[in-house]
Design a protein around this nucleic acid. Structure first.
Length: 853
DNA sequence: GCAAGGTC
């Protein structure tokens, strides 16, 4: 039996196993075993879980390359599924546990994704199971994680629903192809086109883009807002010394003269006559059960915690056993939820213990209303805990809220008495309202929801009150505010953008992509980039950012799930639609580009001249906005540079291979390295060269310190000294601008050696050490320095490995990766050069000597 | 370097 997550495997198994009969094997994924009966026969049960989706979809390797793949071809590109989280070894686990089993019961969550995971699990179990006659695969359908529901599901097992699973496969393929095609195209088009555009990635997605559009549309209506002046009549009067706050029944008028007319009429009347005094009871309904979206909204609006962060905290509270599962759509408690038990555990809580006792004494009335989606119960406290136990801080604030919300949902409604007094003067009606709380109910434990008393002075029908003055109040309509995060969550939920588990991720995405920023009061304000993108979609094809498109796709998917349409044809049809939209978008990208031109400075006009182009010999410009790059205006060529440091000219030296002027790259921080590079070579590495900065979003480039060219005097073959004793793969290269603290840096790892401080200058000699084959160093010592005296001369050629005096006065620094290597003495033939310079002699490892430093 | 959906 397989559940969707480890926690559910445990609870389902314990509902099904006889008490104390369960044996759990701990491992990366726990297995719970017990004896029982299956289909009327004794059986041995094994219950385990996966960790969400087992597989995840991606393009075939040939489409992974941004350079060689046309984004438009992605719509027809082949895809494959591979293990979603290879490190977790879920497939291996399923296969090995399946061995010897005769039957499979699928306990995955009862939603489409869960149905899809059923088939992922089958793929990695069926072929490993023992074949027996009859039905071997079963699906358990449960509507809540409670013992009776789980047992009932076990008694009427069904078949997994392939159509629902296929609908998910279709969604995965559509999301991947549409998202990636647009993302790659946009990124490629805009990146490198504008100097001050700080966007490594200009992403597009069926959820993130409509989410962004909500924020931009609000910002557009703020910008388009025209304030309108309005007027209203405000008579002033008081009773028993208490001023009355009177509202005009006409509200406000947009015509000053007409309002003035009413003002005169009221003023002429001189007094207000009480037309009616009515009272009615007003109820504030206790809250429903707490679901994820509600928790995220409260966290953002009332605690100032962003959704992504709030989810992280909620997850930690869940895994530490303080609250129930935090990803749930349900706001209604399942039938049979143990209210009394959960409540009773809080009876001695230092803060709300008294309140709980009172609730228990009054007899718990199970909450009604809310929606039980059957996924998980609403979020509740899983145990009673104090601030210190929870760990204080934001964790406590979330736990405290969850607990109070739970208690509130079991409490009585709050009741108050509302009094409305209607007064008239000169034919105009005004009213005042007062409120008196009668019963605090749930607001006693959720005090921020409490109604404040605002009593009116006693008034009786027919009574007259003198008017002291009549004000002609002028105001003006004000624009809406930016969307708050909590508004945005509500909009996403309403339009079905994302799920309870992913809403926080999408909001986080548009922040990280620099499309919006979160400002005071957790308002989501679009950036220039966010605004420009959405305005661009609006100009080219507004559907690209409209929330209805997701809905349209969902409707198509539902046809598959309901068995009314075939997956293949829906995918083909929908992909054709998006491919069409994509071609249209590409053809009309100039419309979006013109908006970018207005907001960002084109590359040709930004940046400052730095180094000469090897092709046209004119100066190229250094674009300092990320990603830092060089741009040749006359060749219209963009050359990538290493990131995260500064770029300077390197003594006006040029690359002998292509005539580009060399530049120096310096990282920031202590012991950070500096190395020269040729802008052209960096972007066009020699075959087989190791690259600097590869991975993490960059394909990397070849600086001089990694250049294996035989004929270039800047290559590591000429500037390198000896193999790195630390990383086994790199070479120690002289940093040519490190004076006065001359140093050798490994070109692969962060190992480095400071040469003695009394050096005046250093060069790498063309001669090699007879002992160890390292390149010798041409040392020029400072006059009269200790080293000069020891060497007997100011000029010396010495081997950094074999010359003991030199070695002893060096200072080795190394980074995190440093670990003492045992053994060694392996032959390393990576220098690829006759003479094998820098290679150890026989089995005696020259690197050993470095370890002694 | 890309999407969105699970889960941790």
């Amino acid at each position: 039996m397989v559940a969707e997550k480890p926690s559910l495997a445990l609870s389902i198994a314990s509902f099904l196993a006889d008490r104390n009969q369960m044996h759990s094997r701990r491992g990366q994924l726990d297995v719970h075993e017990f004896e029982g009966r299956f289909q009327g026969r004794p059986a041995h049960f094994k219950m385990t879980s996966v960790i969400g989706h087992v597989l995840s979809i991606d393009f075939l390797p040939q489409f992974q390359n941004w350079e060689t793949t046309h984004p438009a071809s992605l719509f027809d590109a082949g895809t494959k599924k591979s293990e979603a989280n290879p490190k977790a070894h879920v497939c291996r686990h399923l296969q090995s546990e399946a061995k010897g089993c005769t039957h499979l019961v699928l306990w995955l969550d009862c939603d489409r994704e869960g149905e899809n995971i059923c088939f992922e699990v089958m793929e990695h179990t069926l072929a490993w199971m023992q074949r027996v006659p009859g039905q071997q695969v079963f699906r358990a359908r449960f509507s809540s994680i409670t013992a009776p529901d789980i047992r009932a599901a076990m008694d009427k097992l069904v078949q997994p629903n392939e159509n629902e699973a296929l609908a998910v496969d279709a969604r995965q393929e559509l999301d991947l192809k549409v998202g990636v095609a647009f993302t790659r195209f946009q990124t490629r088009f805009f990146q490198g086109r504008y100097g001050n555009l700080d966007a490594r990635l200009v992403s597009y997605g069926p959820c993130q883009t409509p989410t962004l559009a909500f924020c931009v549309e609000r910002s557009q209506s703020i910008a388009a807002f025209q304030p309108q002046p309005f007027w209203s009549v405000r008579p002033h009067a008081s009773k028993q010394g208490q001023a009355l706050d009177l509202q005009w029944d006409k509200g406000r008028l947009f015509d000053q003269e007409v309002t003035q007319l009413y003002q005169h009429l009221v003023a002429q009347a001189g007094q207000l006559r009480v037309a009616s005094v009515t009272e009615h009871e007003s109820r504030k309904h206790r809250p429903h059960g707490l679901n994820t979206v509600e928790l995220l909204k409260v966290a953002s609006a009332s605690m100032g915690l962003g959704p992504h962060y709030a989810m992280q905290i909620a997850e930690r509270l869940y895994t530490s056993g303080f609250i129930s599962y935090p990803r749930t759509e349900s706001s209604g408690y399942p039938p049979g939820f143990d209210f009394s038990g959960t409540l009773a555990s809080h009876r001695s809580h230092p803060i709300w213990g008294q309140y709980v006792l009172a609730l228990l004494q009054g007899g718990v009335q199970p909450p009604k209303g809310g929606k039980d989606v059957g996924d998980h119960p609403p979020i509740t406290p899983a145990c009673s805990a104090t601030e210190a136990e929870v760990g204080g801080g934001d964790a406590w604030r979330i736990y405290d809220y969850v607990a109070r919300h739970f208690l509130g949902s079991l409490s009585a409604d709050a009741v108050s008495k509302k009094t409305k007094v209607v007064l008239s003067a000169g034919g105009e009606s005004f009213h005042a309202e007062g409120v008196t709380p009668l019963r605090s109910g749930f607001t006693a434990i959720m005090p921020w929801k409490a109604t404040e008393a605002a009593a009116l002075p006693p008034m009786t029908e027919g009574e007259a009150l003198p008017i002291t003055s009549v004000e002609l109040h002028q105001g003006k309509t004000s624009p809406p505010d930016y969307l708050s995060e909590s508004d945005l969550i509500a909009l996403m939920e309403k339009h079905g953008i994302g799920t309870d588990a992913s809403i926080a991720v999408h909001i986080n995405n548009i922040c990280e992509r620099n499309y919006v920023s979160i400002q005071a009061g957790r308002k989501v304000v679009p950036t220039e980039l966010g605004n420009t993108l959405v305005r661009g979609y609006q100009k080219i094809d507004p559907e690209l950012c409209s929330p209805q498109v997701r809905g349209h796709v969902e409707a198509q998917l539902s046809l598959i799930a309901a068995g009314k349409a075939e997956k293949g044809s829906v995918v083909m049809h929908t992909l054709a639609q998006f491919a069409h939209k994509f071609r249209f978008f590409v053809a009309h990208i100039a419309r979006m580009d013109s908006l970018f031109e207005a907001s960002f400075s084109p590359l040709s006009s930004s940046g400052k001249p730095l180094s000469k182009c090897g092709k046209c010999a004119r100066y190229m410009k250094l674009i300092s906005a990320r990603p830092t790059r060089l741009y040749c205006p006359s060749c219209e060529e963009v050359l990538a540079l290493p990131q995260g440091g500064t770029i300077k000219l390197y003594k006006g030296l040029s690359c002998p291979l292509d005539s580009y002027e060399l530049v120096l790259f310096s990282q920031a921080g202590p012991d950070a390295r500096t190395f020269p590079l040729c802008p052209f070579c960096f972007n066009h590495p020699l075959e087989g060269a190791h690259l600097w900065g590869a991975g993490a979003g960059s394909k990397g480039g070849m600086p001089c310190t990694m250049c294996p060219h035989l004929g270039c005097k800047h290559s590591f073959l000429r500037q390198g000294v000896t193999p790195c004793p630390e990383c086994d793969a790199g070479t120690l290269v002289l940093d040519p601008v490190s004076a006065p603290k001359w140093r050798l840096d490994c070109n692969r790892c962060n190992f480095l050696i400071y040469l003695p401080l009394d050096l005046h200058s250093v060069r790498v000699s063309r001669r090699t050490c007879e002992e160890c084959d390292s390149n010798l160093l041409k040392l020029s010592w400072k006059k009269g320095s200790a080293s000069a005296i020891r060497a007997g001369s100011e000029d010396q050629e010495a081997c950094a490995v074999c010359d003991e005096d030199l070695r002893k006065s060096c200072d080795v620094k190394h980074g995190r990766s440093y670990a003492v290597r045992r053994g060694g003495g392996r032959s390393r033939g990576r220098r690829g050069r006759r003479g094998g310079r820098g290679r150890g002699r026989g089995r005696e490892d020259p690197l050993m000597s470095f370890r002694d430093f």
